[in-house]
Design a protein around this nucleic acid. Structure first.
Lengths: 233, 233
DNA sequence: AATTTGTATTTTGAATTCAAATATGCAACG
DNA sequence: CGTTGCATATTTGAATTCAAAATACAAATT
């Protein structure tokens, strides 16, 4: 009887951080907005302490800026912030693809292929939200196949900075088709264990997404609280 | 008269975080050690609130783990943690070198060259701590020349995870000579605006450092609180 | 002797309070 | 009308308190 069954414990500050992150992605806390402690405590029915602690977590993640004696504000990304972020993300995801091509197991590859088919089904049905769900799972699987948890974590955190913007992008049919094509190339590169090709297609994939986000920032009200369809790659 | 002269303000939790980070690097808080709030508050003569907030910052930076109802412990890196971290660092610093080669200005290059000569002088005098000081400044300058602040920040944060270990590595003369050689190659690549060469030499540089750190972990008491000479690349 | 149970003490998480800093509103003045 | 000064209200940062959870230790039981 040596089996240990852990009871999951979650501190309140952690729960609060999760909530606030969601609210940032959904736009319920707008970029540039002041995080008023009294209001947020009233909204979430908690005392200030776990809220402040949650805010510190998010400050370290780059999601909010702490202004001494003025509290915290939600980060508002400039165009150059976005360019910088995608540049780093391209590097990280390229690295991820490269390592995945070297380290992927047959069963991991099969899982990605199956997810790819499921995503293809959504594409065929023009089911964008289903497509995005499988798309996200494929990217997680590729990151996982790279077998570097720190790389995955780093990618996730930097991605979180731009997630609200990515969340707002739509796909028109030609762009969508191109994204599908790139996904196919990813799969081929992984299958062939061709790390150079995997890196290349993943970098291109991220940079294309950067361009979509930048376009949205230039033409649309990208910082508005009205969310479009969920978006990813 | 539109110039704004800010008066620097620093919150106590931020100061505390700085102190704790130092204590981690110096080994005054050992890897795996429990961060006892009462003791640390007594040591730093502060109340628990800013200490807890500082700990949350550091948890998000990956320097400590938060254990619900058990407080925080300083991260103790396994060998695979170190391998993963250096793998990511190599990717980031390679990216940094690549971008720096593309974006560096003549005056930035001249500054790096001057720092290189100063570092060479320390090498000639066998002044290891002086060498490390200039070494660090060169790396900061290369990161800066890449002109992606997020990349620099990401590198800095991941480097902070392994800084305590790097701090403990010594240089024997042949290794030191090899490091100098690599630095010269970095300078040449940057001068030639050869981004592939810059990436290559910086990646090698980081991976060599990884090997030194791993060797120290395998043979020495890398987690002891007795610090050797300050070490970097 | 080893294990379990009960109790006291310590530590942690969160709520509350206190004090300083900031923001806002309004009247007086040039 | 714009600026300045002052009072008041609000917010933030930090200290203190409260309550729950964890740990330590002694006594009881097997």
């Amino acid at each position: 009887m040596a089996e240990v069954i852990q009871i999951p414990r979650r501190t309140l500050h952690d729960e609060v951080a999760l909530r606030l992150r969601e609210m940032l992605v959904e736009g319920r806390i707008a970029p540039g907005a002041k995080l008023n402690e009294r209001e947020l405590c009233a909204l979430l029915c908690i005392s200030r302490t776990p809220l402040r602690e949650a805010i510190k977590l998010m400050a370290a993640e780059g999601l909010v800026d702490l202004l001494p004696n003025r509290g915290a504000v939600a980060v508002r990304l400039s165009e150059s912030d976005v360019v910088h972020a995608f540049e780093v993300l391209a590097g990280l995801e390229g690295m991820s693809g490269e390592l995945a091509a070297q380290r992927i197991t047959d069963s991991e590859l099969a899982e990605i292929r199956a997810l790819h088919y499921e995503m293809l089904a959504c594409f065929t049905r023009s089911d964008l939200s289903g497509y995005y769900r499988f798309n996200a799972r494929i990217h997680v699987a590729i990151n996982s196949a790279a077998k570097n948890p720190l790389l995955s974590k780093t990618y996730r955190e930097i991605n979180a900075r731009v997630q609200s913007l990515r969340f707002r992008t739509n796909q028109n049919k030609p762009m969508w088709k191109l994204a599908m094509k790139q996904h196919e190339q990813m799969l081929e590169a992984l299958d062939a264990r061709d790390s150079v090709a995997a890196r290349t297609v993943l970098v291109e994939h991220v940079l294309r997404k950067r361009d979509v986000v930048l376009e949205l920032m230039r033409t649309g009200d990208a910082h508005s609280s009205v969310a479009a369809e969920p978006g990813a790659t």
